[in-house]
């Protein structure tokens, strides 16, 4: 409706003019933030694929890999924040898992990682058992607060507050650092807790941050629900000297307009909270298919 109202009285002589108009509308009007559950790819420049979590986003990712590379064998490295359903539910629909010759290495700190992925493919939940998957699938247990070298990346995990625990990841390669920190609650009860995250985020080029709730909700009616807010994301990134905050794990009841409004408010809070003499923190909101070049 907003797009049609905005177009009233205008003329578009070429497709280019039409595309320019559509681009001017903003994502909440011209498209959608989408609704896939968490799956983030980190493109390293190497031949292997690197992913964070196996939410529903892994299905279109798998299709795109097949479209680009056909049936050639591929290796996938998957780093799991935790094994709650929204973070594993895409795997049964990940087509490369069905192809012999492919290799999938799934890393995480949870002892029940393999069990969780196998169980969701048992009857009556799914018709194809995990054992029928054609790819070679390996599970690799990692420990927090240790450095690993995997797929050309330096990888470090950090324990986060979430039911059943979750883990944030710090990936570094070629002097670029990405933080993946989702399903992580910040209680704001002591400075030590905040400092632990500031140290983990230090000088990151990109922080993918759980900003599911408003601050008021996260510390009142939704305290102990295991998620954080946009305000806390801004503050931790500013204290850490990070360059780009990407709001992630949007509240499912929020529509596109609400997410766009939260993004605009977060960008304004970044201005209000920014210490003097410090560079601006870029703030964006994740959407399906988003690409960020570091």
């Amino acid at each position: 409706m907003a797009a049609l109202r905005g177009a009233a009285g205008r003329t578009f002589a070429t497709d280019g003019e039409l595309e320019t108009y559509v681009d001017s509308l903003g994502l909440a009007v011209s498209g959608t933030f989408g609704g896939h559950s968490p799956c983030v790819e980190i493109v390293t420049g190497g031949s292997d694929f690197v992913l964070c979590d196996l939410g529903t986003g892994v299905r279109p990712f798998g299709q795109s890999v097949i479209a680009r590379h056909g049936g050639a064998p591929q290796t996938f490295h998957v780093f799991m924040s935790h094994v709650h359903w929204d973070h594993i539910m895409g795997f049964p629909f990940f087509a490369p898992a069905y192809r012999p010759g492919n290799r999938i290495r799934i890393y995480g700190a949870h002892a029940e990682l393999e069990t969780a992925l196998r169980r969701q493919q048992e009857p009556p939940s799914f018709p194809v058992d995990f054992s029928a998957l054609g790819a070679t699938i390996e599970f690799m247990r990692l420990e927090p607060d240790r450095d690993y070298e995997i797929a050309g990346l330096n990888v470090r995990l950090m324990l986060q507050r979430h039911a059943g625990d979750s883990y944030g990841y710090r990936f570094t390669a070629a002097h670029k650092t990405v933080i993946y920190t989702t399903d992580s609650e910040h209680t704001l009860t002591d400075l030590t807790e905040s400092q632990r995250f500031v140290d983990f985020f230090r000088d990151a080029d990109l922080v993918v941050f759980d900003a599911m709730y408003s601050l008021a909700d996260s510390i009142s009616v939704k305290a102990d629900w295991g998620h954080s807010s946009n305000l806390v994301g801004v503050e931790l990134c500013q204290m850490a000297g990070a360059r780009h905050l990407c709001l992630f794990h949007h509240e499912p009841v929020h529509g596109d307009e609400t997410i766009a409004r939260v993004l605009a408010e977060t960008q304004r809070y970044e201005e209000l909270a920014r210490p003097d003499q410090t560079r601006p923190l870029r703030v964006s909101a994740a959407y399906d298919g988003m690409e960020i070049v570091l």
């Binding site: 601050l215 008021a216 909700d217 305000l231 408010e265 977060t266 304004r268 809070y269």
Partner: peptide, 8 residues
Amino acid sequence: EIFEIARF
């Protein structure tokens, strides 16, 4: 503004 953004 901060109160509004934080939904306070």
